[in-house]
Design a protein around this nucleic acid. Structure first.
Length: 559
RNA sequence: UACCCCGUGGUGUAAUCGGUAGCACAGCAGGUUUUGGUCCUGUUGGUUCCUGGUUCAAGUCCAGGCGGGGUAACCA
């Protein structure tokens, strides 16, 4: 739920307009809607649109509907209808009403007859190619269809015959009679109805006439009493048509307001391209944790609250911008830092042998679950003489600014003891097989009674108690921050070979009980999500949502 | 070559009736810290695309440029 305290009310061109409309008495109560077409899964771009429409309604004490824009049975499916509702709920929003464009088909049809009666629509016998060819181009006007001046009576008969199923697919269309020379191509007698003898997931076989987007969207908005119909920039050229239909019909006309869609570095939000990724097997489905789909982000472990906070923060404008991925990650980390329980996990282990530890002895140490949240409590973690630490946390010949373990150096094992490195074991090839150390028994818990300090604290796990589990390390799907503008349009060439790495991690034993859907911070590494899909009881699978900020690694890269 | 939209620090985004640029992230420098995380403090970046005009005063208004995006499915 998005019950977190609302940040200061945003100010943007849309809210400014709504405020003005309210003040002028133009609208009494704000009504918005989120109108997805159920022909695919929602992605992060939709999250922005959803957050906008739902938040605006909430802020101004209005309502927001969820409406399936199901006017084209060719691509739509009940599976998507269900998935979309599920995703919107996951984001934390609750619609005031759920509608289907298909439920308005009767009303929309009645309106079509009204337009025919007024001489503002006609039946065209031309096929799709002919219509396209006579539409003209961006710089030249179109030419009138030979059917353009049919009588009202003839058009009415034809339209009714179309509705009655007297014609085959594509044989006839109903067109609005506007202006074939209009500078806006959308106004050059746009098609309103096409014939498709096709089963619709909601209306079954009742219709063979299906309305086009322009001849449905505004009408649906009108029926629902939408006051502010918010959509993305590419619909700007459709607004004149949106207005024309409502005005010609003499029905209530909502106002359409367009805003820029969301773009984030390293992400793609084109349905077509995402489909290519899935169909080409470049990812493991729509819910692959590397996908920007809501289902993918969910499996990645991104908290919906973080997504919504991000969407609110980026605001809304008409400028076509691209956000740095770092901003998005900031919001993800920000929420996770406050809410994720801390655990220890070693992903690239190397043994640490404590030479002076009593043989066979095991001690429990008390660990804090979340330093950011005292209410998160504590847990006990087994400590023994044979531990595993991160390979990166040891260096045989460390540079001066390396604070971690090295021969002769003392560090703190988090929540455990101070240990001092005494040497290493190597195999025949000179490869380090284990790090050796001695511990200071007086430092249990991590503090030295004599007050001496260490420069670093490293995480660890007891070898004998560690849980062996699959951990999937995800990274940007593409090597370029702007995959959409790949050379020759071939974004597949920019697929990152390191976007997914699967390792066997050694985790602290308490993680054995992790349940799908839970989020953790593996101390000093990053935030991880217990996959709700592949995890089994006692055998969790973890997904790295995002790494922790790492100023050491950053400094290394710079050097 | 037509029409529509847009143009504020690295990236985004703000700035009541026009009164002289704020915030977040990123960057940099310190401090705190049993996560080289978090947190705290300080700080570097903007001739508000350009050129003219109106005005006591323009990021905000006007004109002309320049630059970017969008548009020619019986898709949405």
């Amino acid at each position: 739920m998005t019950t977190a305290p609302e940040p200061a009310p945003a100010s943007d061109f849309i809210r400014d307009r709504i405020r003005a409309d309210l003040q002028a008495g133009k609208v009494a109560q704000v009504v918005t809607r989120f109108p997805p077409e159920p022909n695919g899964y929602l992605h992060i771009g939709h999250a922005k649109a959803i957050t906008l429409s739902f938040s605006v309604a909430k802020e101004f004490g209005g309502r927001c509907n969820l409406r399936m824009d199901d006017t084209n049975p060719a691509a739509e499916d009940q599976e998507y209808v269900d998935a979309i509702q599920d995703d919107v709920r996951w984001l934390g929003f609750a619609w005031d009403a759920m509608y289907y464009a298909a439920d308005y088909f009767d009303q929309i049809y009645a309106w079509a007859e009204r337009l025919v009666e007024k001489g503002l629509a006609y039946v065209d016998d031309q096929n799709a190619d002919q219509i396209a060819a006579t539409r003209g181009t961006l710089t030249t006007p179109g030419t009138a269809s030979p059917c353009r001046n049919r009588s009202v009576a003839e058009n009415m008969d034809l339209l009714r015959a179309m509705k009655a199923g007297k014609f085959g697919d594509g044989e006839k269309v109903l067109r609005a009679k506007i202006d074939m020379a209009h500078s806006n191509l959308n106004m050059r007698d746009p098609v309103m109805y096409r014939i498709r003898h096709m089963h619709h997931q909601r209306t079954g076989d009742r219709w063979c006439l299906y309305p086009m987007y322009d001849w449905a969207h505004g009408q649906c908005d009108s029926i629902e009493g939408i006051t502010h119909s918010l959509c993305t920039l590419e619909f700007e050229h459709h607004r004149p048509l949106y207005d024309w239909f409502c005005d010609s019909l003499g029905i209530y006309k909502p106002q359409q307001i367009e805003f820029a869609r969301l773009n984030i570095e390293y992400m793609l939000t084109s349905k077509r391209k995402l489909l290519q990724l899935v169909d080409g097997g470049h990812v493991d489905g729509w819910d692959d944790p590397r996908m920007p789909t809501l289902r993918g982000l969910r499996r990645r472990g991104v908290p919906p609250e973080a997504l919504v906070a991000f969407c609110k923060h980026v605001g809304v404008a008409k400028f076509n911008s691209t956000h740095e991925i770092g901003l998005y990650e900031f919001f993800v980390r920000d929420w996770l830092n406050k809410n994720a329980l801390r655990r220890m996990a070693v992903l690239d282990p190397i043994p640490l042998v404590i030479e002076n530890w009593p043989a066979g002895h095991v001690e429990l140490v008390l660990a804090q679950n979340n330093p950011e949240d005292p209410n998160a409590g504590t847990r006990e973690v087994p400590f023994s003489g044979e531990l595993l630490i991160e390979r990166d946390d040891f260096m045989e010949n460390p540079p001066k600014d390396f604070f971690r373990l090295a021969p002769g150096r003392e560090v703190r094992l988090r929540f455990g003891f101070f240990v001092k490195c005494t040497g290493v074991d190597k195999d025949a090839d000179g490869r380090i097989t284990a790090v050796r150390a001695t511990y200071d028994p007086t430092t249990k818990g991590g503090n030295a009674p004599d007050g001496r300090k260490v420069k670093a604290t490293i995480h660890w796990v007891s070898k004998a108690h560690a849980l062996d589990a699959e951990v999937r390390l995800f990274d940007h799907l593409f090597t370029s921050p702007d995959p959409a503008s790949a050379d020759g349009g071939d974004f597949l060439k920019l697929l990152s070979p390191t976007s997914k790495k699967v390792v066997r991690g050694k985790l602290e034993p308490s993680l054995k009980d992790a349940r799908g859907g839970e989020r953790f911070q593996f101390e000093r590494i990053g935030y991880f999500y217990c996959d709700h899909k592949d995890s089994q009881s006692g055998a969790p699978v973890f997904h790295r949502t995002v790494g922790l900020k790492d100023s050491w690694q950053k400094a290394q890269k710079k050097a």
